[in-house]
Amino acid sequence: MLLIRCPYCEEERPELEFRNAGEAHIARSADIAGESDDDFEKFFFIRSNPKGIIYERWRHMHGCARFFNAVRDTVSDKFLMTYKAGEPKPAKLPGASK
């Protein structure tokens, strides 16, 4: 089980309190009906699925119930950092090998 730091509660809590909410920083088009099939596919179905650093959303379901973002290594499952929803993708990662 993962230990996840909620950036709102500012606490590390067990994974059972959280729901993973998929890849982060995928913006929904403001004009979804006007999206081409190609762009809709990229938005809706295509995922980066990286072996390494992933940017993902979590929701602290059984805590503050808020969404936030996390950076995690999908090989070691180790979290590098978490940050609040709406904050930009971090340019520098603490302790990242690359």
């Binding site: 089980m1 993962l2 994974e15 993973n20 993902e56 999908t74 090989v75 499952d77």
Partner: peptide
Amino acid sequence: DQYVSYSQTGGLH
């Protein structure tokens, strides 16, 4: 598990 991973392991729960 609920998250993307290549770790070939998973949560005890």
